[in-house]
């Protein structure tokens, strides 16, 4: 029950972005990929989403991603992009129903779009125009669309994969927590969640596992307490960072060192 990446390499023109990267993601876990700009996070998530050509292999539940037909892949994993521009004036409901149209349980649960909107805090938004919403609201509509596509974390005994590209980048703190809770519940239900994030504190709080990328390679990989260390951060982010531990939950949190 896993998704693994083996010897993954991606190069744009002559610049190598990912160089022979290998790692394994477990279903039932919330895995978060962090790293500085240009470390290869987005490229990795794009490869996982099937948008990026790559050398090497990505294997989902024992099958090579490149050999799975698209329609089948859409029932196994959902992808929430960072932002989506829509070329026609769709309403929120129409967008979410597009996700539903890719779900194998669409006939049995035609009103799932409503549940997904409710989960993402978008009740009452169904008849509004997507292009008139704020960036954060649009991001949540896209999340609801993908939730509709892969509502059940496990379908026919096979875990599904939820891939999120900076899912909280446009959200206020309340909605950041809401979205992280949705992802966490999906993992708790047996599905696999892989997200790319910039916020180290939120990542440390929610992740079951963190992967720290640097220069297209995995710099560290493990639980938040291990990965979010001042040694790691000071090397990768080239700054003075102070890592503290929250007493109640033993979760690390990061503060920039104050310079006089």
């Amino acid at each position: 029950m896993s998704l693994f990446v083996k010897d993954l390499s991606v190069a744009y023109n002559k610049k190598t972005v990912l160089d022979g990267l290998s790692c394994e993601f477990q279903a039932g876990q919330f895995s978060i990929i962090v790293g500085p700009n240009g470390s290869g996070k987005s490229t990795l998530i794009k490869a996982l989403a099937g948008e990026q050509r790559y050398a090497g292999r990505i294997v989902i539940e024992g099958q090579d991603q490149q050999k799975i037909p698209n329609w089948k892949l859409a029932t196994m994993r959902g992808v929430v992009p960072q932002s989506v521009q829509v070329s026609v004036p769709f309403t929120v409901r129409e967008i979410v129903e597009i996700g539903l149209s890719a779900s194998p349980t669409r006939i049995k649960h035609p009103h799932r779009w409503h549940d997904a909107l409710e989960e993402c805090g978008l009740q009452g938004f169904e008849n509004l125009y997507y292009h008139e919403l704020s960036g954060g609201e649009q991001q949540r509509v896209q999340l609801a669309r993908v939730r509709c596509q892969i509502w059940e974390p496990v379908y026919e005994d096979v875990p599904r994969w939820f891939i999120l590209d900076e899912p909280v980048s446009s959200l206020d703190i309340r909605h950041q927590i809401q979205v992280m809770d949705i992802a966490k519940r999906f993992a708790a239900g047996g599905g696999g969640v892989i997200a790319v994030m910039h916020d180290l504190n939120l990542s440390a709080m929610y992740s079951d596992r963190m992967i720290l990328l640097n220069n297209g390679e995995i710099y560290d990989n493990g639980e938040a307490q291990q990965v979010v260390s001042s040694d790691n951060l000071n090397t990768v982010y080239h700054q003075g960072w102070e890592v503290n531990i929250r007493e109640d939950k033993k979760i690390p949190y990061v503060l920039p060192q104050i310079r006089n």
Partner: peptide, 20 residues
Amino acid sequence: AKMLNGFAMGEAVANHIGIN
């Protein structure tokens, strides 16, 4: 119809919802 609705959200999303 499903193809065209997918295309309206861009090729990446069309790909994610199962369209080749």
